[in-house]
Computed example of a mutant assay.
Amino acid sequence: MTDDSHAKPPAQIPLAGVIGMPVAHSRSPQLHGYWLRQYGIRGHYVPLPVMPEHLAEVLRILPRAGFVGVNVTIPHKEAVLALADVVTDRAALIGAANTLIFRADGKIHADNTDGYGFIANLRQNAPDWQPDAGPAALIGAGGAARAVVASLLDSGVKELRITNRTRIRSEQIKAEFGARLVVYDWAQAGNMLDNATTVVNATSLGMQGKQALRIPLDALNPDALVTDLVYTPLMTPFLTDAQSRGCRIVDGLGMLLHQAVPGFERWFGTRPEVNDDTRRAVLE
């Protein structure tokens, strides 16, 4: 008999997933599963439904079970900041994290890649987009909107107009992000589109099962780039209306795809490409 007491243990198969409640609707397992197959990587990415009261305990246990990291979705994106050992500047600025890395030293590293995904989607699908060409107009003031604000300001937008059904949330974002933001009342949302060269819907209005986004687009500049963070349906009524007025449009699916790139690279060691095949794989 051979003495295998000094044999190397089998290499751990890296595990990752998405934590949320609910999480069954998430397309992230489809996306990461496609990339794992595409690049021939031995790894798994799974949905992890976790109640808020169990979040801290689950995050402590997952690394011991072979998890290298997770994506974070509603309702945990703010709560994980308090549970992380290291928080990136952009996650701290946005006040939420969507990507956790379980480091070899036992520390939890929290980042927010939503803003990266938002800008990468625009750059890929509207390569001649110029963020400093004119004012940007943002509808919504939730967590996703905060990521959009940070990324637009970082990209060089000189004036960012923002409106929300609850005005105080817009005011809070202005207080944190500064003088380049201009707050509009919800009743005046149509007016803020005047001369705007970038227009973003960061609300869930227009999503399947939600109310429509009812903002008059009469003042919309036909040269504007219009994008919607909603991707179910891909062509929201907001995008359809903007396109009929001559605007270039970018749907929200690309943001989901691009925001996943940095996490996948950190967890599995390969930087994945976002292309037409990726889109098809997620839409199947």
Results as ranks from 00 to 15, higher is better:
Lys8Pro: 02
Asn98Phe: 05
Met51Gln: 13
Asp85Val: 08
Tyr45Glu: 00
Glu78Leu: 05
Leu36Asp: 02
Ile108Pro: 01
Met21Pro: 00
Ala92Glu: 06
Ala16Thr: 05
Ala104Pro: 03
Leu59Gln: 06
Leu59Ala: 07
Gln30Ser: 07
Pro9Thr: 11
Ile13Met: 10
Leu59Arg: 09
His32Gln: 11
Lys107Ala: 12
Phe102Gln: 03
Ala92Arg: 15
His44Tyr: 04
Asp4Trp: 08
Asp105His: 05
His25Arg: 09
Ile13Asp: 03
Leu81Trp: 07
Gln12Leu: 10
Arg37Tyr: 00
Ala79Phe: 11
His32Thr: 08
Ala84Arg: 14
Asp114Arg: 08
Thr88Gln: 08
Tyr45Val: 06
Gly95Tyr: 08
Trp35Asp: 13
Thr99Glu: 00
Ser5His: 14
Asp114Glu: 08
Asn71Lys: 11
Pro9Gln: 10
Glu78Gly: 06
Pro9Asn: 07
Phe67Val: 07
Trp35Ala: 04
Glu57Ile: 12
His44Gly: 11
Arg103His: 04
Tyr34Met: 15
Glu78Pro: 03
Arg27Trp: 06
Val46Ser: 07
Thr73Asp: 08
Pro63Gly: 13
Leu59Met: 07
Leu93Phe: 01
Lys8Leu: 11
Leu55Gln: 13
Ile41Trp: 03
Val46Gln: 10
Met21Leu: 14
Arg103Gly: 01
Ala79Gly: 08
Tyr39Thr: 07
Val58His: 04
Arg90Met: 04
Ile61Thr: 14
Pro75Arg: 14
Asp85Pro: 09
Leu100Phe: 01
Leu55Ile: 07
Asp85Tyr: 08
Val72Asp: 02
Pro75Glu: 14
Ala16Gln: 01
His76Asp: 11
Ile101Leu: 11
Pro52Lys: 14
Pro29Phe: 01
Gly69His: 03
Ala56Gln: 13
Pro9Trp: 09
Thr99Val: 03
Asp4Tyr: 10
Pro75Val: 13
Gln30Asn: 00
His44Lys: 12
Glu53Phe: 06
Tyr39Trp: 13
Pro49Trp: 00
Arg64Leu: 13
Arg27Leu: 14
Pro47Glu: 01
Glu78Arg: 14
Ser28Leu: 04
Val70Cys: 15
His54Val: 00
His32Glu: 07
Ile94Gln: 02
Gln12Trp: 00
Ala56Val: 07
Val80Asp: 11
Gly69Pro: 01
Pro29Ser: 05
Gly17Asp: 06
Pro14Phe: 02
Leu81Asn: 08
Val70Leu: 03
Asn98Met: 10
Asn71Asp: 12
Thr2Asn: 12
Asp3His: 04
Gly43Thr: 02
Glu57Lys: 14
Tyr39Lys: 09
Ala24His: 06
Arg42His: 10
Leu83Cys: 09
Pro49Val: 08
Pro47Arg: 02
Asp3Arg: 06
Ser26Gln: 09
Ile74Phe: 11
Pro63Trp: 12
Pro22Ile: 05
Ala96Lys: 06
Ala92Cys: 00
Leu36Phe: 04
Ile74Lys: 09
Gly69Trp: 06
Asp105Ala: 04
Leu81Glu: 05
Leu36Ala: 10
Ala82Pro: 02
His76Ile: 12
Ile101Cys: 04
Ala97Tyr: 05
Ile61Arg: 06
Asp114Leu: 01
Ser5Ile: 01
Leu93Gln: 15
Leu100His: 01
Gly20Arg: 09
Arg64Cys: 10
Pro75Ala: 15
Ala56Asn: 01
Val86Thr: 06
His54Trp: 03
Glu57Met: 14
Glu78Gln: 15
His109Phe: 10
Tyr34Thr: 13
Val70Tyr: 03
Ala84Phe: 10
Lys77Gly: 03
